[in-house]
Amino acid sequence: MSALTDKVVVITGGSSGIGHAAALDFARGGARVLVTGRRRALLDEAAALHSNIEGLVADVAVPEDASRTIAAAVKKWGRLDVLVNNAGAGAILPLADATDAAIANIFAVNVFGPSLLTTAALPYLGAAKGAVINVSSTFGQKSGARLSHYAASKAALEHLTRCWALELAPRGIRVNAVAAGPTESGALTGMMGMSPEQAAAVEEQERQQIPLGRRGQPEDVARWIVRLADPASDWITGQVIGVDGGLALT
């Protein structure tokens, strides 16, 4: 039996990309997984891939959805062992074009949402001696023109990771983060709002800049999320692990 058998995992933004890959890895390891997202069709597709995956329509940017998400997992399976704050928002946003709405949207998803979800999960994670894994980005540490607010939100998430790790260690809750590099997840045309032509140009530029010579696959990042959640990692907390082909070094 896997150490994850019958553990209960909540993954935000779990209907595609890194979250989807992590949900499959957890489910194949025997965990019960609740994935959230805003589109029912994608959630249904994710749930159809494994009997251990359930979907819930929820928006990380909506404060009320935080407690509703955690309550749904606990109601169905009676416990919560792992929270993966994976849902993300970003934009190519030059400072000259920044608006309060655009900045607020990025921080609502990348900072406020994980904070409220983790707060709602605390009683159950404490009872289970569970784990929180936050999904950050290489740009939480690496500067990028026209990415200032996205990068700042990920830097904030990484520092929340370290602060929460200290605060929650006495309760037996571990908190870590994975800083993902560019992956083949459709984020450029989706989250970042680029045209297919713009995305293709950026992807080629990234391939040339990444020391290991390729963009990542969602599975490259997902396996580290699962490893950090595994009880075998029970002496690791407060860490931000870069999974980016060496991009942060450039």
Results as ranks from 00 to 15, higher is better:
Pro196Val: 12
Ile133Tyr: 09
Gly37Thr: 09
Phe112Trp: 04
Met192Gln: 12
Ala71Lys: 07
Gly238Asn: 08
Leu160Met: 15
Gly140Phe: 11
Ile53Pro: 07
Gly216Lys: 02
Thr99Tyr: 01
Leu160Arg: 09
Ala72Cys: 09
Ser153Arg: 03
Gly213Tyr: 03
Lys75Met: 03
Thr12Phe: 06
Ala169Glu: 10
Glu45Val: 13
Val10Thr: 05
Ala127Gln: 15
Val82Phe: 07
Asn86Ala: 02
Leu212Ile: 10
Lys7Trp: 15
Ala152Ser: 15
Lys129Tyr: 07
Val109Ala: 13
Val10Tyr: 10
Val202Glu: 13
Val57Ala: 13
Ala151Cys: 12
Thr119Cys: 09
Ser67Thr: 12
Gly13Val: 02
Asp6Val: 11
Ala102Leu: 07
Tyr150Lys: 01
Glu158Trp: 13
Ala248Lys: 11
Gly37Lys: 01
Glu167Phe: 14
Leu160Phe: 15
Ala131Pro: 01
Leu42Thr: 08
Ala23Trp: 03
Ile53Met: 05
Ser195Gly: 07
Ala66Ile: 06
Gly130Met: 03
Glu167Gln: 14
Ala101Thr: 08
Phe107Glu: 02
Ala199Trp: 01
Glu167Met: 09
Leu56Asn: 08
Ala180Arg: 06
Arg215Trp: 00
Asp234Trp: 02
Arg40Gly: 12
Pro218Ile: 00
Val132Tyr: 05
Glu158Arg: 09
Leu117Gln: 04
Val178Phe: 03
Ala58Phe: 01
Ala151Phe: 02
Ile210Gly: 06
Gly172Lys: 08
Leu147Trp: 05
Val111Trp: 00
Ile11Thr: 03
Ala46Pro: 08
Val33Met: 08
Arg227Leu: 11
Gln239Trp: 02
Ala96Glu: 13
Leu147Gln: 11
Ala87Phe: 00
Glu184Arg: 14
Ala89Pro: 06
Lys76Gly: 01
Ala222Thr: 12
Leu168Pro: 06
Ala47Ser: 15
Pro196Thr: 05
Leu212Gly: 05
Ala87Trp: 03
Arg40Asn: 14
Pro170Asp: 08
Thr5Glu: 13
Ile236Gly: 03
Gly29Lys: 09
Asp220Phe: 14
Ala31Val: 11
Ser15Pro: 08
Glu54Gly: 03
Gln239Thr: 12
Ala3Val: 00
Leu249Trp: 03
Phe107Trp: 03
Ile70Trp: 01
Val10Trp: 10
Ser136Gln: 10
Ser136Phe: 02
Thr119Asn: 13
Val221Pro: 10
Leu125Asp: 03
Leu4Met: 15
